[in-house]
Computed example of a mutant assay.
Amino acid sequence: NGLGARRALVVGTSGYPLFILANLVPTWYTMVPASLYLGFTASLIWVGQGTYLSSAALSHARENSLPEGQTLGNFNGEFWGAYASTQVIGNLISLALLRNGKDGGSVTGKYLLFVVFLGCMIIGIVLMCLLSKRDEKRHNDSTHSSFGAMLKYIVAPLKDQKMILLIPLIAYSGLQQAFVWAVFTKSIVSPVLGISGVGGAMAIYGASDAVCSLVAGRFISGLHSATLIVSVGAILQAAVLFWLLLFYSPMEGLVSAAVPLFIGALWGVGDGVLNTQLNALLGLLFKDVKEAAFAQLMVWQSGAMAVIFFLSPSITLHAMLILMATALFISFGSFLLLTLVGVEKPSTMRV
């Protein structure tokens, strides 16, 4: 809020090249500080992203007399579609540069890979510096004139019924992202396709995610349309979870090799749906407190990701699938309750 969305985006990028540089000399003393700093800057860049994109969409809608819900859906669909496409591009680059190495690539290949990623990051920073000014509503300094005032601003969204009902789905969106990174690749892809097959499976996941994001963004017009789209994604992910829980066992053969790829494609649909719909709905329902709303998104999403990464080394795949299925059931039920309440008016919270 103090920096403004555009500055937050630029400052937030600083953690990513530092983290990439740390990977060139991976030690405890380089990776841990770089990871801590990346976590801090990631909060800036992703809260800034949600705030800026929503401001840009709403501003564009007003200037061109377009429906706000549909415009937010289009903007988020295009952004998250482009974002998910990096899963395809990044994994193909990794596959190309590391294909001749043993156990994940040669030292030379890894260095070249990180240098390529660093170049992409520098291009991204330059582009963010060129962002145009949009309708960024800045709070005055009195918002943080005291610790009490700052605390009141932080917890303000939690007083809104809409946010309370959205939080379980926000948390699940973090759980399902971490699940595909930490569990799916290790316990489902690698046993069947080997480590070398992870890149291909994740590329298919990213392609499905990108296409679904673009398509889902075109169809949102408000809470009820978002509910229908989220329902499709939730049903697909529930089907995957219950099939893995009840029927899946690694086998040999062509059909078995295709299973992880198919699962990745279905899971990408759910991720694309959640990213576009949650971000569009937060921009639509919390127009006056976008910074606080997207901050809540990062708090619950990142916290849920951390839970999966902490648990994955110490619990079985069966237990993890039960946890995911339970979380999906609770979060989707809460989201349906939000639809029944039928609150689509912008938030009027006072901080």
Rank of each mutant, 00 (worst) to 15 (best):
Q161A: 13
G272T: 03
A84D: 03
C120S: 11
H139N: 00
L18A: 05
G73E: 05
E78L: 03
C129Q: 03
G148P: 10
T276W: 10
S85E: 10
I315R: 02
K159N: 10
C120G: 12
L18Q: 01
K345V: 13
R6T: 06
L321A: 07
S142Q: 04
N74S: 04
F117S: 05
S173W: 14
R134V: 14
S221T: 11
N23F: 02
G197I: 12
L244N: 09
N140M: 01
S312H: 07
L113N: 11
L18R: 00
S65G: 00
S312V: 09
T326M: 03
S106Y: 04
G174Y: 08
P346M: 15
N279D: 06
I167H: 15
Q161R: 08
A234H: 00
T27L: 10
G39A: 09
P191S: 14
T339I: 01
V232R: 02
G222Y: 01
G217Q: 05
V232G: 02
V198P: 02
A292T: 10
V232K: 06
K133Q: 02
G283Y: 13
I188A: 02
D160E: 04
G194W: 07
N275R: 15
P67E: 13
V107T: 14
V351S: 02
F310D: 12
N279R: 10
L266G: 03
L281N: 13
F247M: 12
A304F: 00
P346F: 13
